[in-house]
């Protein structure tokens, strides 16, 4: 929530003058996150878990929709097309196929949930690809990526806890969550060794 809130805040027209909108954010990753949250939270109205759970689902969908709108429509001029080029079809298609094959239940809602779990684990790839192409990440982008990466990493601790105390585990969520966290690892290394020391992330050319 902090990461997404940061992104909306920094892209919000009131907060910053249009020319200051942070560059270097991948619009493609933001679209993948929006698809992830919509596909996963379709049970928003049918399955009430808790006020917190419902509130966060609404926040995730609203904030990522706002980010996509601000980036690709309102501030279209500052969106960096030529560096945000990873083909998302090559991410969406395999996730969709895998969701049809490997899932807990062959029902529309469960397939969409599974698709969303697989998609989330690769949704950051366009962003990481863009950072490698631009060769650097703005500090605020680094904080955003660190928050986004640690969210799923912390879930791994929660899954361990639930395995030992509730004797519950969901292998699909766990495998996808581990893959997702591994994808952030090289970024975490850069974040810890550079950004936290006040340096900018500049990748070797």
């Amino acid at each position: 929530a902090a990461g997404i809130g940061l992104l909306v805040g920094m892209n919000c027209p009131k907060a910053v003058k249009p020319r200051d909108v942070i560059t270097g954010i991948s619009g493609r990753s933001q679209i993948l996150f929006l698809v992830t949250y919509v596909a996963r939270y379709l049970d928003l109205l049918t399955n009430f878990v808790s006020v917190y759970n419902t509130a966060m689902k609404v926040f995730f969908i609203a904030a990522s929709a706002a980010t996509v709108y601000l980036m690709l429509f309102k501030f279209k001029a500052t969106y960096d097309h030529n560096h945000d080029t990873l083909r998302v079809e090559f991410l969406i298609a395999p996730c969709a196929l895998l969701a049809l094959v490997v899932n807990h239940d062959f029902t529309p809602l469960e397939i969409l949930w599974t698709f969303s779990i697989y998609l989330e684990s690769v949704a950051i790839l366009p962003q990481l690809f863009m950072v490698s192409k631009t060769g650097e990440a703005e500090t605020i982008t680094s904080h955003y990526l660190f928050a986004l990466g640690s969210y799923r990493a912390l879930y791994i601790l929660n899954w361990i806890y639930r395995y030992y105390f509730d004797n519950f585990f969901d292998l699909i969520a766990i495998v996808a969550g581990v893959v997702q966290t591994v994808l952030y690892c090289d970024f975490f290394y850069l974040y810890i060794t550079k950004v936290l020391k006040g340096k900018k992330i500049v990748l070797p050319a």
Partner: peptide, 10 residues
Amino acid sequence: DPSKEEHDEL
């Protein structure tokens, strides 16, 4: 079996 239970995580 997780599918029988509703997904209760984000």
